[in-house]
């Protein structure tokens, strides 16, 4: 069955795609949610060690990175807006900006990882003599930020694909829907980070 023939019109099709995307986002929330719950439980068990370990993270660098990612959410929103308004050039520009900011986020994250590696906070090269459950904290830190970074990377791939197809062809309703849905995904990934940042970096610094 050709896909075009399934829905009555483009609007129905777009609504179905949006519903599919929201459903998918629900699975993402559960995916991260399970990890958040696991983290919260362990934080409760080893609060002191976790707080002390958290103070070893580069919270200022990560704070700047938060700003980078939030800006990318704005450019993404503008990209969706441009697509809906049919402005191809501004869509291309905003998509490029979003990709740039996303890549910058990953770059800063890599710098953070390297700093942690040098400070002996890396799995397999963990030399810090902190309280024992501190390693558990760092393992959560790598699992959570790693999974998040994987999601950012997937988002970048989707953005690159959108950019290429927008570059090659005119905007049709299908690609507008694709931009919208990628936007939803990108905002979710940002939102996950908005939870991660205070949970990992700031908790140890609360008075």
């Amino acid at each position: 069955m050709p896909e075009e023939a399934i829905f009555e019109d483009a609007l129905e099709r777009r609504q179905a795609a949006a519903l599919g995307m929201w459903t998918f986002l629900a699975t993402e929330v559960l995916l991260f949610g399970a990890l958040f719950v696991a983290y919260a439980l362990n934080y409760h068990l080893h609060a002191d060690a976790f707080r002390e370990a958290a103070r070893r993270l580069e919270h200022l660098l990560a704070g700047a990175n938060t700003a980078v990612l939030l800006s990318s959410s704005w450019t993404m929103a503008m990209a969706v807006h441009s697509a809906a308004a049919g402005r191809r050039r501004s869509l291309l520009a905003y998509l490029a900006a979003t990709m740039l900011l996303g890549a910058a986020f990953l770059g800063v994250k890599a710098i953070e990882y390297r700093t942690e590696y040098e400070h002996g906070l890396f799995p397999g090269r963990f030399t810090w003599q902190g309280p024992a459950p501190a390693r558990l904290f760092f393992n959560f830190y790598y699992a959570l930020t790693g999974l998040h970074a994987a999601h950012v990377s997937a988002g970048l791939a989707a953005l690159a694909w959108l950019w290429l197809s927008a570059f090659r062809a005119r905007l049709d309703p299908r690609s507008v829907a694709a931009v919208e849905n990628t936007g939803l995904y990108w905002h979710l990934v940002d939102m996950v980070w908005i939870f991660l940042y205070p949970m990992l970096y700031l908790m140890g610094r609360a008075p």
């Binding site: 459903t23 629900a26 699975t27 993402e28 559960l30 995916l31 991260f32 949610g33 399970a34 990890l35 696991a38 362990n42 799995p123 397999g124 390693r135 558990l136 393992n139 959560f140 790598y142 699992a143 999974l147």
Partner: peptide, 25 residues
Amino acid sequence: MVLGTPVLATVLVLVALERGLGIGI
């Protein structure tokens, strides 16, 4: 399927991290 399976995915990733990379949770 939609709400449960992601949690299985998480838990399997965590087992793999612990076993393969020593990132124990």
